[in-house]
Design a protein around this nucleic acid. Structure first.
Lengths: 341, 341
DNA sequence: TCCGGATTTGAAATCGCTTTGGATTGGCAA
DNA sequence: TTGCCAATCCAAAGCGATTTCAAATCCGGA
């Protein structure tokens, strides 16, 4: 069933049917209803390719996943994004690449073949080459996270610096002085921000920073374990951890136990929680204190923002910084006596 | 830069340029090279919508994610799939829906608007309504998992029954008699298969099955915890667990510790591992015995199989059942004395 | 009754590609 | 020289929508 058939079926021209279906004003209300009814009855839907060709809009957004950088948070984000875009009948097109170069050539391809109207970037670096290239290509984009060293761009980010700062300050308030920061990969914007927040908190209390208490790792259970284990083996081990992710936290938790400590008593921890339905900080034992921000909600909002951008809002005006809430639970307790320097 | 411009730039017809670029034989090798070179130099890429309209092929596969059913394994699968499809320049189109009805209407839309050439189904039920509908729609599909009660369909599945059976038998060999099975949601094909395998193993050893040692839950850390905790509170608690997923296993592990037991000594566990890069059974403490099968590899293979199907291989011939390897580590040990009935 | 503007409808061009159905050329055997 | 077959290339017809430009119809006011 295509437009032509539908039109002849109704005894109308393709023009009128198309207009009726797309809500143009210059069509009689009764014919509009007649058309809509026939379309529904016959199961007509416009051919997506034809429409795209005619309108010049792809009706799809792209997202390129770098194999080494995606994880459980990716699908949460995607889920939120898709949820928002579903009603507008906009598709999400995902591809995966191995390297940064492949990612860029994926954008080039997408732009040249007009497969997508916009792309969503994630895992930004302070000076991110993708921005310049996408600007050159004229392919609209929005960044989940932000890239401070780069020219103006649309972004949505959470307040990583503030989150790390609050978490660290809280641990300081509890008397901890040797607080480890198990951060994400070195060089990524969000990791920098978290380190800034961490440093700022220590500095504000006059606590000197021990470089060996800062680690940069992938957000995996395993790396969390190894990192914490190494720290426990050194002199002056930490009495508290600020963990970059729940995965990391699980690993650190294991290391804490392996070292014979009890979480929430001997050693404290606050982890950042992206809010996964299958990993609940509230039901762990002990329950986990977190800084939390729903990555799914971020996906939904990013969808909204891109739509705004495509309907004219300047990218330079699209900056959204989400506050991060801190939820204190059992994994944080007073520093054990004698460890406070 | 479109085909017309490129052609006039080269002093050739669109026909010839198109053929040269698409590898048709009736074009002189020297002109083919000339065309390819010019296309590369000018950055020409065929407009995807136009090509799709002309060829009738969408160049994309669809995957609908049900919000309640996706999780960390989803993105792994997607990653593997995308990797295979990248080279063939086939896009993956993901959408999320809330309910089974929405999922079906998503297929209807996709079929009517010809957005995708095929779809990938996941989380099948023994008698899955999607199959009949997709057959009616004439939209090719392949199932990750399978649907035994349904008509012939293309699928790739892992040997869940065999995996559960081997895991259970191994625990029996170690002397365990009260073995709990913490399975996936009731009614799903894979969960049925696992229960079959579990029952078969018990039956083959003449061990009577205790219904309260079988649980059906979502694959979350939390549910694993709660389920195991409940089991420990009842009389005759299990001395071993067969866990449906690594997430579940983490929760069960916590419950084991909370109950004052030691994993691998007082209580054993074998978990099913979909192989996540960020959750490594080999580096847990204690290391986790698993039945494992890479879900990423399954994604890659499913991509391959769909391509075969679209190039003519009958769906009814596409059945692939992957064996599951069992990896024994420290979480499984002999049943403690006195528990063996 | 007739006119002018608003309201509805339609014919045809357009989007950028693929592909059908010829044309044109060159080489070689008759 | 002629004829025929390959090897190349091209003009034009789709693909199925949207959209421009124009025509038809309806209506109230003069």
């Amino acid at each position: 069933m295509n437009l032509k058939e539908l039109a002849s079926n109704l005894g109308l021209s393709q023009t009128t049917v198309s207009r009726a279906l797309n809500g143009y004003p210059e069509v009689n209300e009764t014919t509009r209803i007649r058309v809509a009814e026939a379309a529904a009855r016959l199961g007509y839907r416009a051919n997506a390719s034809a429409r795209r060709l005619a309108t010049g809009r792809a009706g799809a957004f792209g997202m390129v996943l770098r194999t080494e950088a995606y994880g459980p948070h990716t699908v949460e984000f995607l889920g939120g994004l898709a949820e928002r875009l579903f009603h507008d009948e906009i598709d999400i097109l995902v591809s995966t690449v191995e390297s940064a170069e492949d990612e860029i050539s994926a954008y080039r391809r997408a732009a040249a073949s007009k497969k997508v109207d916009a792309v969503i970037l994630s895992s930004p670096y302070p000076s991110d080459p993708r921005i310049g290239i996408l600007n050159d290509l004229g392919l609209p984009y929005i960044m989940h996270g932000r890239s401070e060293g780069s020219p103006a761009h649309a972004w949505l980010d959470i307040d990583n610096s503030g989150a790390a700062r609050r978490a660290t300050e809280h641990l300081l308030d509890l008397g901890h002085r040797r607080i480890a920061m198990v951060n994400g990969p070195k060089g990524m914007t969000f990791a920098n921000h978290r380190e800034e927040g961490y440093r700022a908190a220590l500095a504000s209390r006059g606590v000197t920073l021990s470089p060996h208490l800062i680690a940069n790792t992938m957000f995996t259970d395993e790396m969390g374990y190894r990192t914490a284990q190494l720290m426990f083996e050194r002199p002056n081990p930490p009495t508290a951890f600020v963990a970059g992710s729940m995965m990391t936290a699980l690993g650190i938790f294991r290391a804490i136990r392996s070292a014979g400590f009890e979480l929430g008593k001997d050693v404290s921890m606050i982890a950042h929680d992206d809010v996964f339905p299958y990993l609940n900080a509230d039901t762990m034992v002990p329950t986990m204190s977190t800084t939390r921000s729903s990555i799914r909600a971020a996906g939904t909002r990013v969808g909204e923002l891109i739509l705004q951008m495509l309907s004219g809002k300047p990218a330079a005006d699209i900056h959204e910084l989400w506050p991060v809430e801190m939820v204190l639970r059992e994994s944080t307790g007073r520093a054990p006596a004698g460890t406070q320097l």
